[in-house]
Design a binder for these strands. Structure first.
Length: 888
RNA sequence: GGGUUUGUGGUCUAGUUCGGUUAUGACACCUCCUUGACAUGGAGGAGGCCGGCAGUUCAAAUCUGCCCAAACCCA
């Protein structure tokens, strides 16, 4: 590392030149601290224009990973661009710390179980554990230069958010969008709570497929019968068996339908019924129905009005229905029952089997289906409306809308929002102990906890009874996190109506999030906000992909391929990591790539060195005077005109969240046009004394580059902005650049740059130093006023440029056809034309081309390809639009 | 099992909406060059016929169909 970097950053000195190498190790942490101290990213309520981002609040469940780094960096590109473009940005930060994830973290961290504590006590422990993680997380986010406004943060467990969440519950109930029902529910026996459809996922498990004999009590048609076989993976459900099903096409077992069977060991007699939902391919073709083993059991239970036999309780323990097995866990009961079946001669076979089971995504425990009383939000009756709501938002990339669409189309359950957990936001609800009437909290009193607060009435309005039972359940965590746009806008209830602290923040401009939670966070947010406000919560939705390892595989602890951000940042500057993150196509999964980090590091070095040169060439950089366009030298105007195009292009890229293209196009223009070409020219022009036109151009271009790079590379641009120009205000709060309306002969410029490039190649090929003089160069082509700059940059003594044809002999070597014109005109004769040209059977006749004596092609359809032969002094080089003759 | 998305040189990627001449760029690789901002630089080179097959067309990476592979979502 350089030892010349001990300059204090708080004393900008415009006269002091940049020197040495860029030292991100000290520069980056300095600025991160400075930005937080200066509140550089504070939201300005009074600004005329603004942009708001509904930041995803991470669940507090562990440490920062690459996904966080990637996702928050993408959001930060938008935030920084918009802050410069619009003036101010609302970029808050939240922690989602009220759900099962943080409960399980607390249990893990402290080695405790929630059921051993009072709810209050356990909640306190959760808060403490979460607080530590949140503090560490905040530091991490700051060290990534995420430009969050740290004055606007929230936690989903804090009282203000609890109030919002309970308010939402009451409003949806009043609108008739919620109901309470006792029904089969998806249940996690490990977490001991109801869960919703989205929280379950598939898992392949090894298990045993058991063939069990059932005694026939009587057959359906009175024929003889002794036993039949049922294949099941879940023998512990035998006590809950309420019927046996036969498929209508199952000829072999048709005689059983209408009969009765006896369940082994438990003895209950159950009906044998016909139903086409039986899977003929699996097992014996006969299936037992238990209340409940899976969703089909629920359907059968409802369709055939079967008995209810509940053999498993909330904790996955066998009930008294299981007779002697009562008190065993389901796993223990399974073992015991198989053994006893075997002893009794009812177990015919037990074989290995692999199948897919539904598990709770948080703990991988197999779900059960229990009949319990739960609260639901209605979804199924408004699918079409919610689809339409999704269409009202702009999706980036738009293909991600399909996921939202399919999720809604596939919905089969209303949303169960009650959870039997400790850490969460309570339902603001009590029940009359006598008649069961539901008593809701007053909106003005929220937040309430029915476990410690009294209901708002002394007597039941229905029956007059004065004893009440509190609702003990808490909300599903998504019931609260689906309100983030409203939390950000300060949605509240005051004086009999809904209000906003910051009405300008709703709807939000942008919802950024991963594609994995479209069906969780995005869907639930859209429907809840839509029901509360009658409008969709977002203008744009930006969906990011997942971070993969270098072999394009998902990072996971079990694969051991997880890369920690801290590991990356030990070896690379944050700006380099951001350069990598900008390499994505939005929505696609994105591999970690060391090469990109290295390329980012090189760009930082290039930017630093180019800035050093600009700084050296323009001693008065901070105070350079604007030169009117009419007084600018042609070459300077050309650079500024090219820059205009890049400004427009990069702006459009940011508007469309095309960070990868913004990065590539900006880098290319900066590196090849500005550094390779223009700086070389400027260097020579300023060599011969002061030149206001070039100095102004250098400064204008350089300042523009710093701004364009600022969203992607916030540290180095800030450092240069301050040091080169002595600016006191941050580059990140400066205005986004706009095109200056410069006009120049871009075609001539392009040709001239190609000539420079060709001369550079000539010198390289001929073993000459780049600064070696060339005595004479002739350019045949349109380079306008740029011959002189070319001569300066390439150290040419004498240069001549002419648009005349070069004084060389040519030989026709072929014909290039414009197939977009020739094709439609000649159709399937194109093959003949090609063949004739190939055979040399063509001649030029004035403006047209005669081919094979048969076809006549117009002037716009072809171009004659010539080989140039030069035998004069010097050497000929060809570029696309010019021929150059060089003499050393 | 169904659906969605993706499949371009060793790696990553542009181009695919509205088919059209030599398929873009970066990283890695090879050769040459100490040039006074930068060797984390510059010049040059090799490497792909666009997952596979079939079709439409004068013309297909680009359109259609089928197949294969991967990821995700849902059964």
């Amino acid at each position: 590392m350089s030892d010349t970097q001990d300059r204090p950053t708080d004393e900008p000195d415009t006269d002091q030149q940049l020197d040495g190498e860029y030292d991100p190790e000290t520069v980056e942490p300095n600025w991160q601290q400075q930005w937080v101290e200066d509140e550089t990213y504070a939201y300005d309520v009074d600004a005329d224009t603004r942009y708001s981002i509904d930041t995803p609040p991470p669940t507090v469940s562990g440490n920062l990973h690459m996904g966080h780094l990637y996702q928050f960096t993408l959001q930060d590109f938008v935030a920084r661009y918009r802050r410069m473009k619009e003036g101010t940005v609302y970029f808050p930060f939240g922690y989602d710390d009220n759900g099962i994830a943080s409960e399980r973290l607390t249990e893990r961290e402290l080695g405790i179980n929630h059921s051993d504590y009072e709810r209050r006590e356990f909640q306190e422990k959760c808060r403490d554990v979460c607080q530590d993680y949140e503090d560490a997380f905040t530091k991490d986010i700051q060290s990534l230069a995420i430009s969050v406004d740290w004055d606007n943060t929230y936690k989903t467990i804090e009282p203000r958010v609890q109030r919002t969440s309970q308010l939402s519950f009451l409003d949806l109930y009043e609108q008739g969008r919620e109901y309470q029902q006792r029904a089969p529910t998806i249940w996690c026996p490990d977490c001991e709570t109801a869960i919703s459809q989205v929280e379950q996922e598939d898992l392949n498990k090894h298990t045993k497929f058991n063939d069990i004999a059932f005694d026939i009590v009587e057959t359906g048609d009175g024929s003889d019968g002794d036993q039949f076989t049922i294949s099941t993976t879940r023998p512990e459900l035998l006590p809950a068996c309420v019927s046996v099903f036969v498929h209508p096409d199952d000829d072999e077992n048709q005689h059983l339908v209408g009969g009765t069977a006896r369940v082994p060991l438990f003895g209950q007699e159950v009906p044998i019924i016909e139903d086409d939902r039986v899977d003929l391919e699996t097992g014996s073709g006969l299936v037992m129905c238990c209340t409940f083993g899976d969703q089909t059991d629920i359907e059968w239970y409802q369709a055939h009005d079967l008995d209810l036999r509940i053999a498993i309780d909330e904790s996955g323990t066998m009930t008294d229905v299981a007779d002697e097995y009562e008190g065993l866990t389901t796993h223990e009961a399974r073992e015991a029952i198989i053994e006893d079946l075997d002893d009794a001669g009812y177990l015919l076979e037990s074989r290995d089997h692999e199948h897919t089971v539904q598990v709770h995504e948080r703990c991988d425990e197999e779900v059960e289906y229990l009949v319990t009383e739960q609260w639901y939000v209605k979804l199924l009756d408004k699918k079409d409306e919610y689809l339409e709501a999704g269409r009202e938002m702009d999706w980036f990339p738009d293909k991600m809308f399909t996921r939202y669409e399919h999720w809604i189309e596939g919905l089969e359950w209303d949303w169960c929002i009650s959870r039997q957990r400790d850490s969460g936001i309570p339902f603001p609800v009590w029940y009359c102990d006598d008649c069961g009437e539901i008593i809701f909290a007053d909106r003005d009193e929220l937040p309430v906890d029915p476990l410690s607060d009294d209901p708002p009435v002394d007597a039941c309005p229905e029956c007059g009874h004065s004893e009440f039972v509190p609702e003990e359940d808490v909300f599903d965590t998504w019931a609260t996190s689906s309100l983030t746009p409203l939390i950000n806008a300060g949605w509240d209830w005051d004086d009999g109506e809904f209000t906003y602290d910051n009405p300008e923040l709703y709807p939000s401009n942008l919802r950024p999030q991963g594609h994995d939670i479209i069906s969780f966070w995005l869907f639930h947010t859209v429907i809840k906000c839509y029901e509360h406000t009658d409008e969709v919560p977002f203008e744009h939705v930006m969906i990011n992909g997942m971070v993969l390892d270098e072999n394009r595989e998902a990072m996971s602890k079990s694969k051991g391929n997880v890369i920690a951000p801290s590991e990356v940042l030990e070896n690379f500057p944050v700006d380099a990591a951001r350069y990598w993150a900008a390499g994505t196509s939005i929505g696609d999964d994105f591999p970690y790539r060391k090469g990109d980090l290295e390329a980012g590091e090189r760009l930082l070095q290039k930017l630093w060195n180019a800035s050093r040169l600009v700084d050296q060439l323009t001693p008065q950089a901070g105070t350079v005077e604007e030169v009117p366009e009419t007084e600018l030298a042609e070459i300077d105007r050309w650079l500024l005109a090219e820059l205009d195009e890049t400004v427009d292009l990069v702006t459009e890229r940011f508007e469309n969240y095309e960070f990868s293209k913004a990065r590539t196009e900006l880098r290319d223009f900066f590196w090849s046009t500005f550094c390779d070409d223009y700086l070389e020219i400027a260097k020579q022009r300023l060599d011969s004394g002061p030149n206001p036109s070039t100095e102004f151009t250098l400064v204008r271009a350089h300042r523009t580059f710093l701004k364009l790079f600022a969203p992607l590379l916030p540290h180095i641009t800030e450092e240069l902005w301050t040091r080169v120009y002595g600016e006191e205000a941050s580059v990140h709060t400066s205005d986004w650049p706009t095109a200056g309306g410069y006009e120049a002969d871009l075609q001539a410029g392009e040709t001239a740059m190609a000539v420079i490039s060709a001369l550079r190649g000539y010198k390289s090929d001929n073993g000459l130093a780049l600064n070696a003089p060339l005595s004479n160069v002739k350019i045949f082509g349109h380079v306008g006023e740029f011959a002189e700059p070319v001569a300066e940059a390439m150290h040419v003594d004498e240069i001549e440029a002419t648009e005349d044809e070069p004084e060389i002999t040519t030989e026709i070597s072929g014909v290039d056809l414009d197939y977009s014109l020739v094709g439609p005109e000649f159709g399937n004769e194109v093959g003949d034309i090609d063949a004739a040209i190939e055979a040399g059977e063509f001649e030029v006749d004035g403006d047209s081309l005669l081919v094979g004596g048969e076809y006549e092609l117009g002037a716009d359809m072809f171009e004659i390809e010539r080989t140039r032969i030069y035998s004069g002094e010097g050497q000929m080089i060809e570029t696309e639009h010019a021929v150059v003759i060089v003499q050393e």
